[in-house]
C-alpha cells in the first residue's frame, strides 16, 4: 500500500505541486488539500500517514512568516495533530512549512500549551534570497534523513529563515537530543555568509522533534528531485537522481518496509 500524504494548502501556499510530485516520485499517494476541508471536517487528517506543509507565503507572511496558518493549526486543529503524531505518523514542513511548525507548537516538540522556544526570523542580509546551499546531514535520529549522504545540495529561497532560540538551554537540548538534522556547510572552508545564507545560530537549517518523526527545514528538497534541477548539471553531468529524492523515499519507506 502506498502511504497517503496530505499536502496541506492555504491561501498563499505555492510549493504544493512540486511537493506532491516529490512524494509521488518517491512512491507515495499524495493529495493537495485546502485547510478549509480539514476545518469543515470534510477531510480527516487521520486518513493519511504523512502530513506535509509546503513552502509559500501563507496569508502573505503578513505579521510574521507562517504565523496565521500556525495559529489556525494551534488553536483549531491541535487535537487532530496530537493524535496524528501519537499514532506514529510523519510530519514534514518545508520553508514556510517549517516556520508554521515552530510557531504552531509542533517543533522542537509537540506541545500546544508551552510558549514558543525557537523561531525563524529575518535573514541577516535583510532580504529574500534564492541560492543553493551545502548541508551537513545528521542522519541518526530523523526518519526523513536515514541513510542520506553526509552532505547534500538544496536551494533556499526565503526572507525569514534565520533560526534563533529563546535561550541557550533550548539550543543545548536540541543538541543533546540530536534534533539538529541539517546544518549549512561549506565543504571548502569556513561556514559564513552566504554558505550560511541567513545567519542561523549554529548554522541550523532543519530540526526534528525528539522522536525524529517531525522534520522542519528551510532548504527545499522538493526542488532537487530531477538531476537537471542541480544548478551545475551542465558542468558536472546529470546525476541519476537529485539529492532531495531520498528524503521523500525515507518517509515512504517508514510505512512500506
Amino acid at each position: 500500500m502506498k502511504p497517503r500524504v496530505i499536502v496541506l494548502r492555504a491561501a498563499g501556499s505555492n510549493c504544493d505541486v512540486e511537493t506532491k510530485y516529490a512524494f509521488d516520485c518517491a512512491g507515495a499517494d499524495a493529495e493537495l488539500v485546502h485547510i478549509n476541508r480539514l476545518k469543515e471536517k470534510s477531510v480527516r487528517l487521520s486518513d493519511y500517514q504523512i502530513l506535509a506543509i509546503p513552502g509559500g507565503f501563507t496569508y502573505g507572511d503578513d505579521i510574521s512568516a507562517g504565523k496565521v496558518l500556525a495559529n489556525e493549526l494551534r488553536y483549531g486543529l491541535a487535537d487532530q495533530l496530537t493524535e496524528f503524531h501519537a499514532n506514529d505518523k510523519l510530519i514534514l514542513g518545508i520553508c514556510n512549512g517549517f516556520q508554521v511548525l515552530v510557531k504552531a507548537g509542533l517543533l522542537p516538540a509537540v506541545d500546544f500549551t508551552k510558549a514558543q522556544s525557537v523561531t525563524l526570523t529575518f535573514n541577516d542580509s535583510g532580504k529574500f534570497e534564492d541560492r543553493w546551499v551545502h548541508l551537513r546531514v545528521a542522519a541518526d535520529k530523523c526518519v526523513f534523513a536515514r541513510n542520506m549522504p553526509a552532505s547534500v545540495y538544496f536551494p533556499v529561497a526565503h526572507a525569514e529563515g534565520k533560526f534563533v532560540v529563546h535561550d541557550a538551554g533550548v539550543l543545548e537540548r536540541l543538541k543533546r537530543n540530536q534534533q539538529i538534522v541539517f546544518q549549512y556547510d561549506n565543504p571548502f572552508g569556513r561556514v559564513e555568509y552566504p554558505m550560511n545564507p541567513n545567519g542561523s545560530v549554529d548554522h541550523i537549517a532543519g530540526i526534528c522533534d525528539p522522536q525524529g518523526r517531525i522534520l522542519g527545514l528551510m532548504p527545499h528538497p522538493e526542488r532537487h528531485i530531477d538531476p537537471t534541477q542541480h544548478p551545475q548539471w551542465t558542468r558536472l553531468g546529470a546525476a541519476e537522481t537529485g539529492d532531495g529524492l531520498p528524503l521523500f523515499r525515507n518517509a515512504v519507506r517508514y510505512f512500506t518496509d
Binding site: V17, K127, F128, R131, P155, A157, R223, I225, Q232
Partner: peptide, 22 residues
Amino acid sequence: IRQYDHEVQGGSVLKPLVGVKN
C-alpha cells in the same frame, strides 16, 4: 536576481545565474 525566487515550481533547468559558483 537572487531576490527573485527563480526555482519555485521546480522546473528550472538553466537558471539565470550559472557556472562554478552559480
